[in-house]
């Protein structure tokens, strides 16, 4: 058996019937991208403090966005909690459109859910109260427990900007 034929056989082993290759010979690029922001050419992309700190800084320089005990050993409803938190975040994004300037923090204690965050003073206080009432009531209908909002207002959008990249 000469070399070209043996190579052919080996290459046939590594070839699936559909013609795909299974073995990668190049080194792996171990790059983490989630929760990190890329610099822009003009260095004018605003980041809040939370955005400026990558995920490995959680519990060191910043904190969690969801506070619950679902994922500890023997915790209740872990998957439901995750999905519900996602729902709450999407609901708030849509209802308080372009008003939340920070991440939406969801804290659960017993059957109480508290939603916190920084809000831009973009609408009148009266309308903000309307939104608070609407959000609390509708989410409590949906999640079937007491939902409370704990918002802090910010006079200017730029107040929450930590740095530009």
């Amino acid at each position: 058996m000469n070399l070209p034929t043996s190579l052919k056989i080996v290459s046939n082993i590594f070839r699936s019937q559909t013609g795909m290759r299974f073995v990668h010979m190049s080194p792996i690029l171990e790059k983490n991208q989630a929760g990190r922001y890329r610099t822009t050419p003009r260095k004018n992309f605003p980041l809040t403090y939370e955005m400026a700190n990558p995920p490995h800084q959680i519990a060191h320089r910043k904190s969690w966005n969801s506070w619950n005990t679902s994922n500890i050993l023997g915790g209740n409803r872990p998957s439901e909690t995750a999905v519900e938190d996602l729902f709450i975040r999407k609901f708030i994004e849509g209802t308080w459109h372009a008003l939340f300037l920070s991440e939406i923090i969801i804290k659960r204690q017993h059957n109480l859910i508290r939603i916190a965050g920084l809000v831009n003073r973009g609408v009148l206080p009266r309308k903000m109260y309307f939104l608070i009432g609407y959000t609390e009531e509708l989410l409590s209908f949906w999640l079937q427990c007491v939902v409370k909002m704990e918002i802090q207002t910010v006079a200017d959008k730029k107040d929450v900007i930590f740095k530009y990249i």
Binding site: R126, Y129, F130, L131, I132, G133, Y134, E136, L138
Partner: peptide, 18 residues
């Protein structure tokens, strides 16, 4: 008055949606 009533109006809106 208007803040408290506005919050309640929001709650009523949620009741209506439901």
């Amino acid at each position: 008055r208007s803040y408290a009533m506005a919050q309640e109006a929001g709650r009523k809106a949620a009741h209506w949606v439901r």
